[in-house]
């Protein structure tokens, strides 16, 4: 097959995207784990590590732009590169959410957790799986898998609603808990936002594979529109 330079650049970009995805996923899981154990030192490390995520995102962008400028990609190749630019941005934002969870951990200071974290780690695990699957589908140019992934967002939304109600109940029962409950709510919200961005990545995958722009997002009831 001709176009070896382009091919190898594309492969390289795929590897870099997977690497960035791993870093983001790990940052999120670590942030939740640190929150669970109220490990503020760990949280500081996560915040510092976000710089590496940002740096890799810009490296990927630069590499994609160089390929566009030098290889004149068209059709599928062009869509792939446009998606790489987009997905790198999404991942960076997801990294920021993970960093946000770590910041909440620090903001909570020496206050203990309101209750042991159970649903939030579950939410995080599902989101992490979704992210991994979504990036794998992108790399494999697999529109079918990509279209199925956002359905798991419903689970995430369900867990989020559950956490929300639980924390509201805490706040109503004892207004002194409002501060701590709010912190946890923010953390849960961050994870929920990350799952939404996975959906965007899946849309990009479908666009790359087929050239079709579809919206996979779900309404507030969790039903696909």
């Amino acid at each position: 097959m001709p176009r070896q330079v382009l091919e190898s650049e594309i492969q390289n970009l795929k590897n870099q995207i997977l690497r960035l995805g791993d870093m983001v996923r790990q940052a999120m899981l670590d942030a939740i784990e640190a929150l669970k154990h109220r490990a503020t030192n760990r949280a500081r490390q996560i915040i510092a590590a976000d710089q590496a995520i940002n740096a890799l995102r810009f490296d990927i962008e630069k590499a994609a732009l160089v390929v566009i400028a030098t290889q004149q990609p068209l059709a599928h190749d062009l869509r792939f590169l446009a998606s790489v630019l987009d997905i790198a941005g999404e991942l960076e934002r997801m990294g920021d959410y993970a960093k946000g969870i770590a910041k909440i951990n620090i903001l909570m200071g020496d206050k203990p957790l309101l209750k042991p974290l159970i649903d939030l780690p579950r939410m995080a695990n599902i989101t992490a799986d979704m992210l991994q699957a979504a990036l794998q589908a992108f790399v494999n140019d697999d529109a079918e898998t990509a279209a199925a992934i956002p359905r798991r967002d419903d689970e995430v939304d369900g867990l989020y609603n559950q956490i929300y109600r639980e924390l509201i109940t805490f706040m109503i029962q004892d207004p002194k808990t409002i501060d701590q409950a709010n912190y946890l709510l923010w953390a849960a919200h961050n994870v929920e936002r990350m799952a939404d961005r996975v959906t965007n990545i899946c849309e990009r995958t479908i666009f790359t594979a087929s050239g079709e722009i579809v919206e996979l997002d779900t309404d507030e009831n969790g039903n696909a529109r």
């Binding site: 097959m1 001709p2 176009r3 382009l6 990609p73 068209l74 059709a75 599928h76 190749d77 062009l78 869509r79 050239g211």
Partner: peptide
């Protein structure tokens, strides 16, 4: 035609994989 060709042959040609 250049962003989303319908035919495989077109895609192969314009992406240089003819």
């Amino acid at each position: 035609l250049f962003t989303n060709p319908k035919e495989k042959l077109t895609e192969d040609y314009i992406t240089g994989r003819f």
